[in-house]
Amino acid sequence: MKGLSIISSLLDNDFYKFTMQNAIIKLFPYAKARYEFINRGKHSFPKNFSEKLKECLKQMSYLRLSNEEKNFLEKSCPYFDYEYLNFLKNYQYNPKEVCITQYGENIKIYIEGLWNRIILWEVPLMAVISELYYKLTGAEPISDKKIILLTKEKLNRYKKLNVKIGEYGTRRRFSYKIQKLVVKVLKKGGGSLFMGTSNVHLSNFFSTKPLGTHGHEWIMFHAAKYGFSIADRIAMENWLNVYRNNIGVALSDTYTSSIFFQNFNQKLSNIFNGIRHDSGDPILFIKKTIDHYKKFKINPLKKEIIFSDNLNPNKVAYISSFCKKKINPIFGIGTNFTNDVGVPSMNIVIKMVKATPKKDWVSVVKLSNVNEKSTGDKNMIFLAKKILHLF
């Protein structure tokens, strides 16, 4: 296997990692965090996988933000100030922040350090794990020609539905090459329905808008610092303190949507452009969202729901049909675009498990709307559910 440089750009990452990094630098510059790899799919890793993975990460340490990439960020993200762009220009991955061990067919990975530094590891690390796994296990995808045809077929279905779509598939892609091929097809044939990609490097390459706001870890940290009950609200207010209403989509399921809506007060409901749905029954969520907006006399047709939970054409058709003339849906499609290539896709995640909101380490948890997507220390999950009356 020649060369182990799977990630070739510092911007080969999801946009929300950079928006969160900027906010962390502004508000929590001394906070530390710890992330851990979770092998949900119980995948068996080949011999010496950990050593090959370490080689890939070593190659990532040579990446730097180019002047051209910096110019792209300045133009497409005017809310990124000089301070942050200068930080990013001097940033480089440090493989010492990532601890990798292998026991037989199992690998353990954790990332630890200053939160504003290590936040960039999660997405590209997952992309490397995925692509390296397929390379070392000899997995053969369908041909590029078939991938192009399949992507066009999906795109045609989305066109008939007249829905807006974005590509969100970096973390579990089969390979960088296939993700790039898919985005090329979407860019060429998607017209105004293709909103762009969450991958900042590919956004630059294809001259599209980078998509994303913030992830669950942003709210998880706030829960550790301010408490579970008000974490959603404080996290949203802090987001507005940094970005005003420039990147205004709220994430709804870190501590279940019922708790989120309690925190999503009239002011926040008006300011944020919409809400992201990432777990649970989408139809039930649509109904709750519409009722919530109407309670504050807000027209739901002026708001958006960004759906991002394991989407495919059939699911998109089902959701969009229910949304019609009620609220505006946008669909962030990930694995179904970048890893629908004739081999089983990996079921892996990397999640924050601890943070230092003050001086000491505190376990952080995510509850989600479905138990399978909850993460963190079992005792802390129990405590969170007790505090939030979720039993």
Rank of each mutant, 00 (worst) to 15 (best):
G113L: 15
I111L: 10
Q179R: 11
D232A: 12
A224W: 04
I148H: 04
N246L: 10
E55N: 14
Y243L: 07
I147D: 12
D12W: 06
Y176H: 09
T356D: 02
Q21N: 09
I319C: 05
K225G: 07
T151D: 09
K58V: 14
P78M: 02
S207N: 08
N328D: 07
E140I: 14
L53G: 06
L240F: 02
K188Y: 03
N310T: 14
A223G: 01
E122W: 00
G104T: 11
K108H: 03
N371S: 11
G190W: 08
G280Y: 10
G227I: 09
S279E: 08
N22H: 06
N312R: 01
F307Q: 14
I6T: 08
H277P: 12
F260P: 05
N22W: 05
I118A: 00
L63C: 06
A31L: 04
F261H: 06
S44P: 14
G169R: 01
S130L: 08
F37R: 01
W361Q: 01
S50R: 09
G3Q: 12
L65D: 02
D253M: 09
R172L: 05
Q21D: 04
K209V: 05
I219S: 01
K366G: 00
K324N: 09
E105W: 15
E131Q: 13
K378S: 15
P282N: 11
D360I: 14
K70D: 03
Y93T: 00
G3E: 13
K154G: 09
W218R: 03
I7D: 10
R34L: 03
F174H: 03
E304V: 15
N371F: 06
K359L: 12
R64N: 04
D278I: 02
F221M: 08
E55W: 08
N312M: 02
K54H: 10
N371A: 06
D81F: 04
I350K: 07
N246G: 08
T356A: 04
K180E: 08
N204Y: 15
A231Q: 07
G189V: 00
Y84G: 02
R171C: 07
H43N: 13
K209W: 03
N336Q: 15
Y84I: 15
K17G: 02
P124G: 03
I230T: 11
K366C: 01
N71R: 15
I118E: 00
E122Y: 01
K354I: 02
D144R: 15
Q92A: 13
L114Q: 06
K54M: 06
K302C: 09
D278M: 02
M346E: 05
F206R: 11
D291N: 15
G376L: 14
L149V: 12
S279D: 03
K351Q: 14
L388Q: 05
I286T: 10
